[in-house]
């Protein structure tokens, strides 16, 4: 069994009395996409900075490609690619010039650099506009360029910090296609995101809250373990008043409004009959009740149950 490409073992980082990362243990296997989810300020970026060798841990270990990052950060930096949130591009340079710049930073020899840049432009679909200034580019194109910058030196391990933040849906899809291509070729990618549909595409995800790991597993496993109950979507008259009736029906674990529908987590799909009866008895016409799949949002809410919100 191959060792993991990325691992954290009881990783801790404190800043004075504040514990930003509180004993995080996780693993990303070679050729996988690992998703890191959590609110801003939860410790995701601090964890990534430790994995990239930009920040030393307070205790515990960060291991990338078999190397203890704290002991040999420079070796790690050569093997990884990092794409930051908001992309770190030079607005007054062109696409090609930005890649030239990054090529220089990663120590790609002048001779091979042109070929490598052309290869990267192909890969990230930027062959149409290599001489356009970055400030003229849309967010979706900048995103591809920023990824290109992280891929120039052909790293086996990539850290992508909110790479699709604010990007249009078509570019997001294209980006994720590229991520899957890269992992199919054996790269390991750790990505942070706020988009639940992206989290669904990860092989494994970890949810971090206040520096602690709250859930860790494949999307399917997490749904099975944390949200084993069926969810019904109810479409009825006067959903505001109906919510109370639904919440109080025996067999309903939780109910919440979702636009004009109500989502009810139930012990069993048979509760649908009891719901229909209760609603009709109180004068709320029932238009439709159907089962819906649990989302990762449901999973995280279930996982975070019991955590104080402060």
């Amino acid at each position: 069994m191959m060792p993991p490409a990325i691992a954290c073992v009881d990783l801790v980082r404190r800043f004075g009395t504040f514990t930003a990362v509180d004993r995080i243990t996780l693993q990303a296997h070679v050729g996988s996409v690992f998703g890191f989810l959590g609110p801003n300020g939860s410790g995701k970026s601090t964890t990534i900075r430790m994995l990239c060798g930009l920040l030393a841990p307070t205790s515990g270990q960060a291991i990338v490609d078999g190397i203890d990052v704290a002991r040999d950060p420079e070796s790690v930096k050569r093997r990884i690619g990092y794409m930051s949130q908001k992309f770190s591009l030079y607005e007054d340079l062109t696409v090609r010039e930005n890649l030239e710049f990054y090529g220089g930073i990663y120590g790609i020899g002048r001779r091979g650099r042109r070929a490598r840049i052309d290869e990267t432009l192909e890969r990230t679909d930027l062959t149409d506009n290599p001489d356009t200034l970055v400030r003229e580019l849309s967010v979706g194109v900048r995103q591809r360029l920023a990824l290109g910058g992280a891929l120039l030196h052909r790293p086996r391990i990539l850290f992508l910090d909110e790479p699709t933040s604010g990007v249009d849906p078509i570019s997001r899809r294209r980006f994720w296609s590229l991520i899957h291509e890269l992992t199919a070729e054996g790269a390991t990618i750790l990505v942070t995101t706020h988009y639940m549909d992206e989290a669904e595409q990860c092989d494994r995800i970890a949810l971090i809250r206040s520096g602690k790991l709250v859930a860790d597993g494949s999307p399917a496993d997490l749904k099975r373990e944390l949200m084993p109950w069926p969810i019904l979507s109810i479409d009825c008259a006067n959903p505001f008043e109906a919510l109370d009736i639904i919440a109080r029906t025996p067999g309903v674990r939780d109910a919440a409004l979702y636009g004009v529908h109500i989502h009810a987590v139930v012990e069993d799909t048979a509760v649908a009959d009891a719901l229909r009866t209760a609603l009709e008895a109180s004068g709320h016409a029932v238009y439709r009740i159907e089962g819906v799949a649990a989302t990762l949002e449901d999973v995280f809410v279930a996982a975070a149950e019991g955590d104080a919100d402060a």
Partner: peptide, 21 residues
């Protein structure tokens, strides 16, 4: 709710729906 965790987001929407009510 950009950048806010799913639990807080759900809470936030519960408050919003209350206002709409």
């Amino acid at each position: 709710t950009t950048g806010v965790d799913p639990v807080s987001r759900r809470d936030f929407w519960r408050i919003l729906y209350g206002l709409v009510g």
